[in-house]
Design a protein around this nucleic acid. Structure first.
Lengths: 157, 157
DNA sequence: GCGCGATAGTTTCCTTGTCAACCACTCAGG
DNA sequence: CCTGAGTGGTTGACAAGGAAACTATCGCGC
């Protein structure tokens, strides 16, 4: 797996191909989302809030593998777009005023299924032609890696 | 593939898993490279220059899927670290003074095999346990996607 | 009750990339 | 010639995230 120089070519690494394709997929998705005025990171947050309404910023940071600072700014952006609301945690009030809660607005909630359709389309464009066997192998391999290395989210160093 | 809401779960997309793993791989690699004071983008440039000495910035931009502006700044950084040299294109001189050429310094050239070893190790950590069959399926699927969609590099919109 | 450490969130600074305007240079047509 | 279109490279404004310092708040131990 080395060339004449004793140095592995870039594309000799599986990681190279994964990165290449993954970047393309994300980029294509970002373009689709941009038409709706949303970034990929914003989409992920919206999607997360759709599932479990009323989430604490730090919990989001944990789940999404971003820093609390990043979530803080992201939340501000989404609030400005009127897609989410920020407020004190009603479940904890009046006890702990440190906690915040993010939740979808009606607009935000209505938007998620539309964006989800874009995500489906995007995935199909890239992976739709794979035969089910291949698909399973790839998906299981990825899940296996995640499990084996105990990966949670990106920044956990 | 949809949950009760009629919305596909995030992890129902193959792209999600690819991105997840790919991010982890890159992040782990970035950490290893950081110990040598190099970023992933810089590594890719060094690796590219290692193969074909004397490359034009715009050619690099094309190959690596970055803008010319990004390469310009990246080259400055690498030059500051004395890993590459920037100069007029000797092959074209004295004809076209617009062309520039990037080339590794001796330090830069000596560094590549060391970084390559890190890349090998990183890839092995994540993918070393896959059996050869799985590996081939994944790699071929990725290459197939690249070929099928005529992908060249990220930004080609 | 008080103070001190932990914890949630915010803010500041830094890095790195894109985008778009810009400069320098070449060359082809009049 | 000289002008103008095209190309290679650089620069400046901006976006987005990470790291770390900072703020506000809480609750435990004395």
């Amino acid at each position: 797996m080395t060339d004449g120089n004793g140095v592995t070519p870039l594309d000799g690494h599986l990681g190279y191909w994964l990165r290449f394709v993954s970047n393309q997929v994300s980029h294509a998705f970002a373009t689709k989302l941009a038409a709706r005025g949303v970034t990929v990171a914003e989409w992920v947050v919206l999607r997360e809030l759709f599932e479990r309404d009323a989430v604490a910023p730090s919990a989001l940071a944990e789940r999404l593998g971003m820093t609390r600072g990043a979530i803080s700014k992201l939340a501000d952006r989404l609030a400005t777009k009127e897609l989410i609301t920020q407020g004190p945690d009603p479940a904890r009030l009046p006890h702990d005023r440190r906690y915040q809660t993010l939740a979808l607005t009606l607009d935000g909630r209505a938007l998620v299924p539309e964006l989800s359709a874009l995500a489906d389309r995007n995935d199909a464009e890239f992976f739709g032609h794979l035969d089910p066997g291949e698909r399973v192998v790839i998906e299981e391999a990825m899940k296996g890696i995640v499990r084996r290395l105990g990966l949670r989210s990106v920044p956990v160093e």
